[in-house]
Design a protein around this nucleic acid. Structure first.
Lengths: 197, 197, 197, 197
DNA sequence: AATGAATGAGTTTTCATTCAT
DNA sequence: GATGAATGAAAACTCATTCAT
């Protein structure tokens, strides 16, 4: 009797292996064989489940985004005020889970890939715009709309920048210091640009 | 007698071609043959001058950093006060020359590559630490040392983040808006953390 | 399930093909593709199993030495007196198996290669010193130690010289004549330098 | 005014450079560019004078043989008796000039090449047969014809074997010890097989 | 479902040889 | 004669993908 329900297990194992492999190599230039080995199976099976290397990589990317999305959802569920929701968003962005070296590194690599791959770009844009509108939506309760847009841009850029430095091992700050830097920015901007009167 | 002094000309042509190729591909994963073709020569000659593909790519990276360094130097020459120097640094970072798609793209790819390539990492770290100490040095005239460090970190992350978004074509801001965002951050932070008394 | 245990089969096939190819070309300068073709597989597979051309060639050399070693062992097993063992050693050195054009040719090429390749040199030195000490050990029962060393040197050089001539097709002697020449040398030397009293 | 008579100088320089290069590389697999550089000229000029790499290598081989021939002639000129001539032949074979590592090494490499290259084979055979008949001719004065042939074979093989060991750096004997080994062989053989009565 | 053997197309790399000057 | 730039063909090597079992 064949083991039932192997497919989802195998797929998940491959996706995780791909993320780890990309993260540890610091390159999208990983070998299917290496991913499969890390996932404890043959390269042939990896192809069987995903059809091509590109699909594996894309699935890994999707997986990272999905994880982040569900983290957002659970964090946001507990928040009630706009400021709490903003704090929750930032806390999620810097959640240790998403900040593991492998994840950060894989994430950045996806950024690069998005430049030349429409599928990756679409995925990433979806994520970016969701985050942006989420930020803007909550900021609008705390400041005027134009300011909300500006702050959202600044926050987004700051987060991306901190990510990139993390990936390079150049960030001398720990998680709380990093979050403090972002919160500080948020506080300053909110103090600077108040609600229109 | 053959054409003399072709070496520097060819090397420069190859480096430029490599930057363009990397920029247009959005990947470090370019072919030597493609670079050589773009530079108007055979792939054999490219190898003759650089020895290997890696060296060509590394030279391209070095070139980008060199250009940025000389831009810094000329901008800084005209500045006299610390604040002017900070403004000049930021202006240089967002100089259109450095923000051309090809350059941004090559730059980002370089970031990723630095993770797995010691040569690239060394080069990048040199650039990063120079920029950081330059920022800190000038900020120390305007605020207390601890604050100077913190602001330099925030500025660095912000700039990196804006770069990444530019590379993705996700930055809806133009050059002046982008610089405005950075200046604004600088102003806010300086206002927040004054000189120690 | 694929055919299992192909690796040793393929490796052996490649090694044999390499020996044949080297022998028939009279050069170590053979193409991986040619070896692979002779072994009935793709060049990719040859690389898969050996990693590089050099490793294939080295493995071929090792194989030749191994064969000779096992021939020594079986010949020596039957010998009981020192003189019988010396005769067995010489008989083995001139065993037709080791004197096939392909083998001789590969062997000579190996000699040359040993000059620039540490791996080959180590292998060859191992063989050379084993043979030498084997000769010396048995000669010591028949003559004084200093003489044993000298005879071993002479025998070694004579054998090498006969090999090289065989490789060039310049040796007008057949196997027995060639062995006779060596035995004759041994007899003369033993007669000349007797046991110390 | 162009320098006159440059051609023979250039050719000689290239030939010497080729011998050195082959000797130091321990391979016939040397680059034209490397030979030319060693000879202090461009690779283009090397082709101008020799037409192809093969011709350079062959010329180097011819050069070594020519040198040895002239050494034979001058040594033989002084000898008057058969035994003196034999001694002179052996002394020439082990003349330090011909025993320089580069020469020995290049020589061996030629041996290999002779297996796959008719031009090289012809050249080498010419040398070999001349030496052989020279040995035989003089030996015939000292022993019976059949014995002369046999001794000449043994001497030839012994010399070749000593050469190969020299090239490998495996010969623990110095020049005089090496010659002693050969003379010893000659003496023993002559003592063993006297003139027919 | 699963394996890992096998392929072959795609790239890098090397170098003898040619050629404009 | 002389240079060294330039080429291009040949070879090594890599790896996604296929496939027999």
């Amino acid at each position: 009797m064949p083991k039932l329900g192997q497919e989802p297990i195998r797929r998940a194992a491959l996706i995780n292996a791909a993320i780890e492999e990309i993260g540890s190599a610091g390159t999208l230039d990983v070998k299917v064989a290496a991913i499969a080995r890390r996932a404890g199976m043959s390269s042939g099976l990896a192809h069987h489940y995903f059809g091509s290397k590109d699909r594996i990589v894309l699935a890994a990317m999707r997986q990272i985004l999905t994880r982040m999305k569900s983290r957002f959802q659970s964090e946001l569920a507990a928040a009630t005020t706009p400021r709490e929701r903003l704090n929750a968003l930032i806390a999620t962005l810097f959640d240790p889970t998403g900040f593991e070296p492998a994840i950060v590194s894989a994430w950045l690599t996806f950024y690069i890939r998005a430049q030349s791959d429409a599928g990756a770009r679409r995925l990433l844009r979806l994520y970016t715009s969701r985050l942006h509108s989420n930020l803007v939506y909550n900021l609008k309760s705390l400041t005027n709309p134009a300011n909300a847009e500006a702050i959202a841009h600044g926050l987004g850029a700051l987060v991306d920048g901190l990510y990139i430095r993390q990936a390079l091992g150049e960030n001398p700050l720990d998680r709380y210091q990093t979050m403090g830097l972002v919160w500080d920015y948020l506080d300053l901007k909110l103090a600077q640009g108040p609600m229109e009167e």
